[in-house]
């Protein structure tokens, strides 16, 4: 069997066992995959057209159904890029970064404003609702930038290919998302389209999610805390950003083929 399909099937088994509350939604998503043309055997490499069809399924929008999350820190953080931030803010209000500014210029401008020292208020550059493509975004309490931000990203389950070279770290005051009850423990439906995800057990009533760290590809284990957060109003939340270039050739690199065997073992254990 194709390794990707094997990973997906193991995930399905583990996810249903660990989060039985989501089983019906998982089955709906699985049926939706098979109904695509051509049918898809796993959801980790869908096309734009596939997403356009899936987004009308109820299960696709059934997000943030995990228990309320508790962030025990002053800020939560997220690793992104400027074009990704724009994609995550669909009805954006253009401010100091104009609509038709290229992403390269936008990044250079942010770097210039940042001057290596300041967190910059996002609302200065754009406004709107930061919602993500499915109505939520992923955040962590792991502090960024860190001594080695690429390795922190690996501890969040991100492979190099998912890390932009012109990164933007977002920081949001926890008090805001807590007071608005926006924080949830990620569910298997939230993570359905990602092939690296540790499903917390429903029965343990978790208050935090934990990523699978890929930092040491041969020994996958629990990584940093992760949460999903419902749409955030940029102006209200006082989200800030920190631009950071991540293209040092000496950086640690981890790719999918480094971890695929470890993932199969990991999910076998979770499903067992």
């Amino acid at each position: 069997m194709d390794e990707e399909v094997l990973i997906y099937e193991l995930r399905r088994l583990a996810d249903s066992k660990r989060q039985p509350s989501q089983k019906g939604l998982l089955e709906e998503l699985h049926a939706a995959l098979l109904s695509l043309s051509p049918p898809r055997l796993h959801p980790y490499a869908l096309t734009r057209q596939d997403y356009a069809i899936l987004k009308f399924r109820a299960a696709y929008g059934a997000v943030c159904q995990g228990s309320q999350g508790t962030m025990a820190s002053k800020y939560c953080y997220r690793l992104s890029t400027w074009p990704k931030i724009l994609g995550d803010t669909p009805n954006r209000d253009w401010r100091l970064i104009p609509k038709d500014l290229s992403e390269r210029e936008a990044f250079d401008y942010l770097v210039h404003q940042h001057a290596g020292i300041h967190w910059l208020p996002v609302r200065q550059f754009i406004g709107g609702t930061y919602s993500g493509l499915r109505g939520f975004t992923w955040w962590t309490t792991a502090v960024m930038p860190s001594h080695n931000t690429i390795c922190t990203a690996h501890e969040l389950g991100l492979l190099n290919r998912y890390i932009g070279t012109e990164a933007i770290i977002l920081r949001c005051p926890v008090e805001h998302v807590r007071s608005k009850m926006l924080v949830h423990v990620p569910s298997v439906v939230d993570a359905y389209f990602f092939n690296i995800f540790h499903a917390m057990r429903d029965e343990e009533n978790p208050t935090v999610g934990r990523a699978i760290s890929v930092e040491v590809p041969t020994v996958l284990g629990l990584g940093q805390e992760e949460f999903v957060v419902r749409p955030i109003e940029i102006d209200e939340a006082q989200i800030e950003l920190w631009p950071l270039t991540l293209n040092d050739p000496a950086d640690h690199k981890v790719y999918f083929d480094d971890v695929q065997e470890g993932l199969i073992r990991y999910y076998k254990t979770l499903a067992g």
């Binding site: 074009p83 990704k84 493509l133 290919r161 998912y162 890390i163 070279t165 293209n247």
Partner: peptide, 17 residues
Amino acid sequence: EAILLEVGSSRQYVSRL
């Protein structure tokens, strides 16, 4: 597409490679 959704653009994708 799945990677582009994460990194945001084809330019970011190529720059990483």
